[in-house]
């Protein structure tokens, strides 16, 4: 039998229902000193490269091409060291009815209504799929309400969280209209061999969310979810450059942003082109499980 370390044992014991998590005063004391005076760990902000000058990043998602396979969801989870205790990961994918039923256009998210679900297990060609993640809003309510300044907006358009400043008050979570933020309810564990060294590990009690893959995009790469999408539904780019693919897409295609009435100025645009005819349909990865606070 594999030797269990203490943490795993505690987890298993509590999962079995018979366990009772005992406090660990020494650990708490140690932690308290660390919180007040800082620890020797490399600060999270040092993981983030400097903002790219002159750039204004954003993303375009073509709903006509999204098949709802959830590949982005799982790839993002791996890329960003998201532990299993966080569910759903940064991306939620919704299945919804055809908006008008006439043209096959997905008119607007306001049309998300009857039959919309996050827990579909089979893909259907007559349905629409809609991934939602942090929109990196220009008027981000989460940044506005954060008491510590842990959530901040960088000049290149990214909304980031400094995990060494966040006090876990969760005001940002109540203020985000898109449900994009996740809280570390438990100590996050990602085994060493699976960990991405470019992304800082979080601790329990802090908030995290999509970073637009800051460790990649500021080094000139695309985000992981863009890379992994089998039908290239996602496009990432610089909106300050009029020749970039994203700028052109926004100029030429019909598009909308989520909950535009709230004036949050999201940096993710959704295209409402008709459904792409020649698409590869993959089997979907499983829906998110064990979501806290959601009846399953």
């Amino acid at each position: 039998m594999k030797k269990l370390d203490r943490r795993e044992f505690i987890k298993l014991a509590s999962a079995a229902g018979g366990g009772f998590l005992m406090p660990d005063p020494l650990k708490v004391l140690n932690d308290a000193v660390g919180q007040l005076l800082g620890t020797k760990k490399k600060p999270a902000s040092e993981y983030y490269p400097e903002p790219v000058t002159g750039a204004r990043f954003g993303m375009v998602i073509d709903l006509g091409k999204c098949i709802g396979c959830r590949r982005c969801m799982y790839a993002c989870k791996r890329e960003n060291n998201v532990p299993d205790t966080i569910s759903p990961p940064y991306i939620m994918v919704f299945e919804t009815e055809s908006a008008t039923g006439v043209t096959g256009h997905f008119a607007s998210p306001e049309m998300m209504g009857k039959g919309t679900t996050m827990f579909y297990t089979k893909l259907r060609k007559d349905k629409w799929y809609m991934p939602v993640q942090c929109n990196h809003c220009d008027n981000a309510p989460c940044v506005q309400v954060c008491p510590t300044g842990a959530s901040y907006k960088d000049p290149d358009g990214l909304v980031l969280i400094d995990y060494d400043k966040c006090i876990g008050c969760r005001y940002c979570m109540t203020a985000c209209p898109y449900g994009a933020r996740r809280f570390n309810w438990w100590e996050p564990h990602v085994s060493r061999d699976r960990r991405n060294p470019l992304v800082p590990m979080r601790r329990h009690g802090v908030v995290e969310k999509c970073t637009f893959c800051v460790h990649r995009t500021r080094r000139g790469k695309f985000t992981r979810c863009v890379e992994v999408c089998p039908n290239k539904a996602r496009t990432f780019g610089n909106f300050n450059d009029p020749d970039s693919k994203v700028s052109k897409l926004i100029e030429s295609e019909r598009n909308f942003r989520l909950k535009e009435g709230l004036n949050t100025e999201p940096r993710i645009w959704y295209l409402t082109k008709p459904k792409e005819k020649r698409m590869r349909w993959y089997r979907p990865l499983p829906p998110p499980k064990n979501i806290r606070g959601v009846k399953s």
């Binding site: 506005q144 954060c146 008491p147 510590t148 006090i167 008050c169 969760r170 809280f183």
Partner: peptide, 23 residues
């Protein structure tokens, strides 16, 4: 309620963002 309570003691002297109503 805070996830990182002892760091929370640094509010509002060391950590602060004046647009936050919580602050």
């Amino acid at each position: 309620d805070l996830g990182v309570p002892f760091r929370g003691l640094k509010v509002p002297i060391i950590l602060h963002n004046l647009t936050s109503l919580f602050l």
